[in-house]
Design a binder for these strands. Structure first.
Lengths: 108, 108
DNA sequence: AGCGGTACTCAGTAATACGGAGTACCGGAG
DNA sequence: CTCCGGTACTCCGTATTACTGAGTACCGCT
């Protein structure tokens, strides 16, 4: 599948929130997870940009922990605001995707 | 539903293509149609931006016709390239939305 | 000592959608 | 007849978001 980047705008942040919400984790691993999920050309730089934004907006709490295989990792966990934001994201996704599917089915 | 604009990035152009593909139509009417469909805060300026881009990229053919109730309308119809682009759009949508739904279901 | 893999930061660029001002055409109310 | 609201399009500037690429740094293994 070729370039999906434009279509991911506005949803990638939500995906990252969901991943963090499932399990406390860190940037490098989140990137791997997204790649596994099929978002092959999502790159580290992009994920770190999102994580810094989430942190700045108070949606996540950060804990730095040493790693046995490299430099220290920044582990992210959702804050209360982050959980709200995640719920809002899924509500919007539900709304938008249902409308688009209706349009696709030729609904009027 | 509050601000959906970021989530629409990358999909709005495809929606406009789909609307044009269903029926030859013009900018003002496309805006009304999108609003009807639930994309309430999509605004004329946005749609016209997309239409000019589609025209520039050769995805549509344009015919100007007089109107009884206002200034002349620019009617848009898909070109062959536009039909291909529309098919690609739906393929991408299918791909992306299925991955996101899988993530939502906690799939791994 | 150096290399490959792990891990994060940051500055610059491109694409997309919104906002708002401007132009212009039409019919009906006053 | 003039003005106003609805129809219809254009253009410029702004904000957000994701990608690119270069840079820094830690670790274990050869």
């Amino acid at each position: 599948m070729d370039d999906l980047t434009e279509m991911l705008k506005g949803t990638l942040e939500g995906c990252v929130l969901e991943i963090i919400g499932t399990e406390e984790t860190y940037g490098y691993a989140i990137t791997r997870r997204l790649n596994e999920l099929g978002f092959a050309d999502v790159i580290e730089g992009t994920v770190y940009t999102i994580l810094l934004r989430l942190e700045k907006n108070g949606l996540v709490q950060v804990t730095k922990r040493p790693s046995a295989v490299g430099p220290p990792r920044k582990f992210y966990a959702l804050s209360a605001t982050g959980r709200e934001e995640l719920a809002t994201f899924w509500a919007k996704w539900q709304y938008v995707s249902s409308r688009i599917n209706k349009l696709k089915e030729g609904g009027r």
